[in-house]
Write a protein that binds this DNA or RNA. Sequence first.
DNA 1: GGGACATTTGTTCACGTAAACACGACCGTC
DNA 2: GACGGTCGTGTTTACGTGAACAAATGTCCC
Lengths: 362, 362
Amino acid sequence: MDETAGFAQRDEGPAAPSGAAGARHPGRRASMADVARLAGVSSQTVSRVSNGFPGVTEETRRQVLAAMKQIGYRPNSAARALKRGEFRTIGVILFSLSSTGNVRTLEAIAASAAHEGYAITLLPVAVPTQDEVRGAFTRLGELAVDAVIVIMEVHLLDAVTVSLPPNVQVVVADSDAGDRYTVVDTDQVGGTRAAVRHLLDLGHRTVWHLAGPEESFAAQRRAGAWRAALEEAGREVPEPARGDWSAESGYRAGLRLAGEPGCTAVFAANDQMALGLLRALHERGRSVPGDVSVLGFDDIPEAGSFVPPLTTVHQDFAEVGRRCVQGVLRQVRGESPERGTTLVPTRLVVRRSTGAPPAGDR
Amino acid sequence: MDETAGFAQRDEGPAAPSGAAGARHPGRRASMADVARLAGVSSQTVSRVSNGFPGVTEETRRQVLAAMKQIGYRPNSAARALKRGEFRTIGVILFSLSSTGNVRTLEAIAASAAHEGYAITLLPVAVPTQDEVRGAFTRLGELAVDAVIVIMEVHLLDAVTVSLPPNVQVVVADSDAGDRYTVVDTDQVGGTRAAVRHLLDLGHRTVWHLAGPEESFAAQRRAGAWRAALEEAGREVPEPARGDWSAESGYRAGLRLAGEPGCTAVFAANDQMALGLLRALHERGRSVPGDVSVLGFDDIPEAGSFVPPLTTVHQDFAEVGRRCVQGVLRQVRGESPERGTTLVPTRLVVRRSTGAPPAGDR
DNA sequence: GGGACATTTGTTCACGTAAACACGACCGTC
DNA sequence: GACGGTCGTGTTTACGTGAACAAATGTCCC
């Protein structure tokens, strides 16, 4: 608490970079040379102190540190990056931040990266068109990053014929293509399987599915796993309904499903659609879970506050983010060029939207 | 479409940086000098082409471009930043990405920044303690950014006595303190006023309030405006309930409010809490809007799919983000050191959770 | 006391880019 | 045909840092 206002925004530090001498840019940041001059040492010594290198007397170190503090020295990261050939920055390229999963993953990535001393540069792609993606990668090419984490469906990525600069590593979250990149993903198949089994165990004859958009790989995998789980159990596989991940689309699909006779359990591909589904069922006078059981995917924070609280498959996005950073940094450090998919386990969270089917349908 | 695989990840471009000569780092990226050598010109000419400067023959330009393409040249942003003294990067410092508002704002910031040719560096602060914030600002100090956008309650910021490097501009979103920083915020007072008036116009005697956490400035302002609007209309001001923005806290508060006699209209400080409130009312057998009207704040995408669809105050986070970038870039360009608060208007979205009070309470 | 060696500090230079300046070729004008 | 002015291009240099090397100062042992 030795400085006054929050952001000092000082026009010129207490001791400005040595008068008019080197002050070309008026508000120029202090450089190592300035510190060196003030402390009466060479700039190399300042560098050593700045990097915590040995071979500096305690006495000298103290003087240098004092000088640094006095003129408010901060290492120039551009010069540092230029010299070292690394930026200590990871680029994250993703589609709009509207999906909870992406955001949570990003959050974890940022936290992990910060912990490792890396910064995050964000590259959102507004519209998932090839042109947009291509543009983002082009920008990325000249961006100051050592590595890239892509949170995206790979099929879009494949369409993009962009070459990254050599030595820029890539990890892809939430996708297939583990054979070509290092991929981190949640165990969607396992989660789906647990979801379906939970409903069948409750006594439902079969489980309907409210799928995500066709072009989404995650949606495909959930739908595929749902089908497989039903077939494995020897149950009938109803025609899946389809939404676009939004609650609104879940509502529309729900209005249809509400009219389906024999539909006593629905597995929605995400929680938002499950929310819309709940609303549709409510409006159609079908009680949940009395008449119909509803099960979601994601476990968004609000899921426990739906009416009724939603049983859903919890995804550990934080862990995905952490592993992405680990993977990409391992590559940066040249430790292992491992490709392949890492699966983060999911967990079924049972709340109150699922129960036994109505007596007649048992 | 002239390149092969998605990420070429070429170990060494088609024409590596001129043999073993300058190849200290094996996978070194091609530099201007390499391009110059290949094209048979000086590196300065390459620079001119690279920056689209005039004074280069069409003929020469073509040759240089061809050479660039051949060896896969990308400008080195570190060197560029060092030379130019600017990074073309904006740092965004915010608390956890769990609030919809923050995320939407961030999204818009990223989009606007990209549009202006700026990159975004993300600095999430996990826990809103002073130490954490201080740490983030320290990191920020040596980060490669020209400007900073802070999405945070200023009171936390004030506690932090960190000085940013000179010339680093600051814009604060969602806060007060317009006298010290450039602040962009949504018109929370106007939105609240519209919300309260809407409920009073429907015939409610008064409006209860489910407030956000005490330490939140946004919560304070909404609560204050709610109180003012009621007093202005000469209505009784009930004791506000308090949550922590989460749906769960809204549920707990809702259980209490459901028992309050005379509580026919509740204005929740955000949509998540409104969601929990809806659930509590539903569980207590109070119909919405038949017995109680509920009104939220934010207009999150799911709000229209609540049961019933939520009437709420829409915040234009995208506009907030855009103005943040505008403001900060204006400062960077030295156009105006304007302080003061910019207000982005809100809009009342009437759905089905509000209606006239029950006959007895009219 | 002299030589081998460790410890601390200083000097030089290169990283890749781009501003400033220098140079030569070509143009039209008188 | 000599002169000033463009125009296109090359040369030099600086940005701030840190590796490599050099130098200065001890320190110890024989």
